Amino acid sequence: MKRRTLLGLSAALPILAARATRAAAALGGSGHVGPTNLITDVAGLTVGEAHDTRVRTGVTILLPDRRVACAVDVRGGGPGTRETDALTAGNLVRSIDAIVLSGGSVYGLASADGVAAWLGARGRGFSMTKQPGVPPSPIVPTAILFDLANGGDKNWGLNPPYRDLALKAMDHPTRDIALGTAGAGYGAQAGALKGGLGSASFVTADGMTVGALVAVNSLGSVVVPGTRHFWAGAFEMGREFGGLGAGTAHVDPEDWGRAKFNPAARANTTIACIATDADLDADDLKRVAMMAQDGMARAIRPVHSPFDGDVIFALSTGRRPLPPGSRPLHVARLGALAADTLSRAVARGVYEATLPPGMGIPTWKNLPD
Score class of each variant (00 low, 15 high):
residue 184 A to F: 03
residue 337 L to K: 02
residue 57 T to Q: 03
residue 4 R to F: 15
residue 364 W to F: 10
residue 115 V to M: 00
residue 213 L to K: 01
residue 30 S to R: 12
residue 352 E to R: 11
residue 208 M to Y: 15
residue 210 V to Y: 04
residue 170 M to G: 02
residue 254 E to Q: 15
residue 300 I to G: 01
residue 2 K to L: 15
residue 107 Y to G: 12
residue 26 A to N: 12
residue 66 R to W: 09
residue 88 T to Q: 15
residue 344 R to Y: 02
residue 303 V to A: 10
residue 242 G to L: 05
residue 180 G to P: 02
residue 53 T to S: 13
residue 199 S to L: 03
residue 99 I to R: 00
residue 213 L to D: 03
residue 127 S to N: 11
residue 260 K to P: 02
residue 330 H to G: 14
residue 239 R to D: 13
residue 225 P to T: 07
residue 350 V to E: 00
residue 162 Y to Q: 03
residue 15 I to Y: 10
residue 149 A to K: 12
residue 145 L to K: 02
residue 233 G to T: 01
residue 244 L to P: 07
residue 81 T to G: 07
residue 167 L to S: 09
residue 235 F to N: 09
residue 37 N to Q: 08
residue 211 G to A: 06
residue 139 I to C: 08
residue 123 G to A: 10
residue 317 T to S: 11
residue 193 L to S: 07
residue 145 L to N: 06
residue 324 P to K: 08
residue 8 G to Q: 11
residue 258 R to V: 10
residue 318 G to Y: 02
residue 242 G to F: 06
residue 365 K to V: 12
residue 109 L to Q: 07
residue 359 M to N: 14
residue 121 A to P: 05
residue 283 D to P: 03
residue 291 M to W: 10
residue 23 A to Q: 10
residue 192 A to C: 10
residue 139 I to N: 05
residue 167 L to R: 11
residue 297 A to R: 08
residue 80 G to E: 02
residue 215 A to K: 01
residue 80 G to L: 04
residue 142 T to L: 01
residue 222 V to F: 00
residue 29 G to R: 07
residue 95 S to D: 15
residue 327 R to G: 11
residue 236 E to T: 03
residue 242 G to D: 04
residue 353 A to V: 09
residue 22 R to T: 13
residue 138 P to M: 11
residue 186 Y to F: 11
residue 106 V to E: 12
residue 271 I to G: 04
residue 345 A to I: 02
residue 356 P to W: 03
residue 209 T to E: 00
residue 278 A to K: 08
residue 242 G to P: 00
residue 115 V to Y: 02
residue 268 N to Y: 03
residue 136 P to L: 03
residue 341 T to K: 03
residue 363 T to K: 00
residue 64 P to D: 08
residue 287 R to I: 12
residue 362 P to W: 08
residue 281 D to A: 10
residue 270 T to F: 03
residue 188 A to E: 01
residue 214 V to M: 06
residue 235 F to L: 12
residue 166 A to F: 06
residue 26 A to C: 12
residue 134 V to G: 07
residue 296 M to H: 12
residue 312 I to T: 10
residue 332 A to P: 09
residue 145 L to W: 05
residue 266 R to L: 14
residue 114 G to V: 06
residue 109 L to G: 08
residue 41 D to W: 02
residue 130 K to V: 14
residue 220 G to T: 04
residue 367 L to S: 09
residue 351 Y to Q: 01
residue 200 A to V: 06
residue 324 P to L: 07
residue 189 Q to S: 15
residue 246 A to R: 14
residue 158 L to Q: 14
residue 278 A to W: 04
residue 209 T to Y: 00
residue 276 T to D: 05
residue 10 S to C: 14
residue 322 L to T: 03
residue 63 L to H: 02
residue 17 A to M: 13
residue 3 R to D: 15
residue 11 A to L: 15
residue 103 G to M: 00
residue 250 H to C: 14
residue 115 V to C: 05
residue 202 F to C: 05
residue 345 A to K: 01
residue 149 A to P: 03
residue 312 I to M: 10
residue 336 A to T: 13
residue 176 D to Y: 12
residue 290 M to K: 15
residue 155 N to Y: 13
residue 30 S to Y: 10
residue 197 L to C: 04
residue 172 H to N: 13
residue 76 G to L: 01
residue 125 G to Y: 01
residue 157 G to R: 04
residue 62 L to A: 08
residue 323 P to M: 04
residue 133 G to P: 04
residue 24 A to Q: 13
residue 153 D to F: 09
residue 23 A to G: 08
residue 320 R to S: 12
residue 3 R to L: 15
residue 278 A to I: 07
residue 17 A to N: 13
residue 223 V to S: 02
